[in-house]
Computed example of a mutant assay.
Amino acid sequence: MRLADFILQNMEAIVAQWEAFAATLLPAAANMKSPALRDHAQQILQAVAKDLSTAQTREAQFEKSKGHAPRLIDAPETAAQTHAILRARSGFDIRQLAAEYRALRASILRLWMDECPRDELDMDDVIRLNEAIDQALAESLGHFSAQVEQARNLLLGMLGHDMRSPLQTIQMTASYLVALNAGENVTRAGSRLIRSGARMHALLDDLCDFNRTKLGLGINIAPTQVDLAAVFGDELDQLRTIHPDRRLRLAIAGECRGVWDGQRLQQMLGNLVLNAIRYGAPDTPVRVSVTGEDADVRVVVANNGAAIAPADIEQIFEPLKRGADHEEKYEEDSHLGLGLYIVREIVKAHGGEIDVRSEQGETAFSVRLPRNR
């Protein structure tokens, strides 16, 4: 008997073994009833049987074994994809999901071999089954990973949002302690709390922005008429207060007014300058130049110091990435590695472009911002 026919005729026996195995995947399956344990097993098996009955070239079979079967445009989710989403929501982990497919493959082959004489077993059917199961597994793993990542991002976003209120209370209390003028020790302790709270607030802002982009929402901007000379001048004044030992220079040329989100561009410049302070030579200035042109404004943040390795340049705007020598040189850094990623997303939200050049002891980030997008 051909394997496709065997699967369709023995559907209940195969699904029963699927259910029995799924029930052993604890703790997720502990309180699940039969319909939930079986989930989309029957639909997955029907798809496998249909695949086995469909004529395919060797090339098509090979691609399918890698999980690259062609998908129709605007086609609905497959049973394997829907199954993965439901398993993720039920608390299964990715190893348990993969184990279901391994067990399914073994159950089908074992029942088929027990039922049919050996001389009637077609080895090509075995190969085709492996390819079909691999394709279903690839579809499941892709959707499972996406579902888990989305849930994680939502959790982190809610956590970041909910932490703002107690953090604001801490900062307000610290400011009150400083204002009391109750002695040098109290004032010094309150000042430390204020600085630490500001760093935590910046980390939470980066975390919330990161989660917005990972959820497909992008960086939120509210464009208004903005004068970049004033906005950037104010940002550098604040950074000079925080880093009194560093020289920060600002050069303005041309018309620098346009329609942008001023607060977001302050955040962009702050991240670039802090990056330059963090990695640049401490005895050299960080140079910011803003040049107004006809259609856009160009912003360059440059610093002197060791050049960035080409391998690090390639991933410098990726989230949670740092240079190979970061941990060795900057053990006390407390940032998340999101600063340049947030910069890129802010620039992208404004319809602009950003690139980086690092050579001959100078690193420069160059941003182009359309004046009226």
Results as ranks from 00 to 15, higher is better:
residue 181 N to W: 07
residue 127 I to T: 07
residue 360 Q to W: 00
residue 123 M to N: 04
residue 26 L to Q: 14
residue 216 G to L: 06
residue 143 H to P: 02
residue 85 I to P: 03
residue 45 L to Q: 05
residue 247 R to C: 08
residue 88 A to H: 10
residue 191 S to G: 09
residue 4 A to M: 05
residue 148 V to N: 12
residue 23 A to F: 01
residue 338 L to T: 12
residue 177 L to M: 15
residue 322 R to M: 08
residue 190 G to Y: 06
residue 140 S to C: 08
residue 173 T to C: 02
residue 199 R to G: 02
residue 117 P to Q: 07
residue 51 D to P: 00
residue 178 V to P: 06
residue 275 N to W: 07
residue 59 E to A: 04
residue 190 G to K: 01
residue 122 D to C: 06
residue 119 D to I: 03
residue 57 T to Y: 06
residue 306 A to Y: 05
residue 85 I to S: 10
residue 98 A to C: 02
residue 231 V to C: 11
residue 206 D to A: 09
residue 368 R to L: 10
residue 133 I to D: 06
residue 314 E to I: 00
residue 338 L to S: 05
residue 170 I to K: 06
residue 138 A to P: 01
residue 352 G to E: 11
residue 283 D to K: 08
residue 346 I to G: 06
residue 348 K to E: 10
residue 214 K to P: 01
residue 277 I to D: 01
residue 128 R to N: 13
residue 237 D to P: 04
residue 81 Q to D: 05
residue 68 H to W: 10
residue 252 I to S: 09
residue 2 R to C: 03
residue 214 K to I: 00
residue 341 Y to V: 03
residue 338 L to W: 05
residue 126 V to L: 02
residue 13 A to S: 15
residue 8 L to S: 09
residue 150 Q to Y: 03
residue 154 L to R: 02
residue 130 N to G: 10
residue 253 A to P: 01
residue 329 K to T: 14
residue 76 P to E: 11
residue 122 D to E: 13
residue 355 D to K: 03
residue 50 K to H: 09
residue 331 E to F: 05
residue 324 A to D: 15
residue 195 R to P: 05
residue 130 N to V: 08
residue 47 A to V: 01
residue 204 L to G: 07
residue 24 T to Q: 15
residue 125 D to G: 09
residue 349 A to G: 12
residue 111 L to I: 00
residue 303 N to A: 15
residue 332 E to Y: 11
residue 144 F to S: 05
residue 161 H to A: 14
residue 177 L to P: 10
residue 2 R to K: 14
residue 22 A to F: 06
residue 58 R to E: 13
residue 273 V to G: 04
residue 13 A to I: 14
residue 221 I to K: 00
residue 152 R to S: 14
residue 180 L to I: 01
residue 219 I to A: 12
residue 28 A to I: 04
residue 125 D to M: 10
residue 148 V to R: 14
residue 3 L to P: 02
residue 173 T to N: 13
residue 346 I to F: 08
residue 301 V to R: 01
residue 326 H to F: 04
residue 174 A to P: 08
residue 254 G to W: 11
residue 42 Q to W: 03
residue 111 L to V: 00
residue 139 E to A: 12
residue 343 V to G: 03
residue 96 Q to M: 11
residue 124 D to M: 04
residue 69 A to K: 03
residue 332 E to M: 12
residue 106 A to W: 06
residue 51 D to C: 13
residue 147 Q to K: 11
residue 73 I to S: 14
residue 320 L to V: 06
residue 82 T to R: 14
residue 196 S to Q: 08
residue 59 E to K: 00
residue 365 F to H: 04
residue 26 L to E: 12
residue 308 I to P: 08
residue 339 G to M: 02
residue 37 L to V: 00
residue 183 G to P: 06
residue 139 E to M: 11
residue 153 N to Y: 02
residue 202 A to M: 11
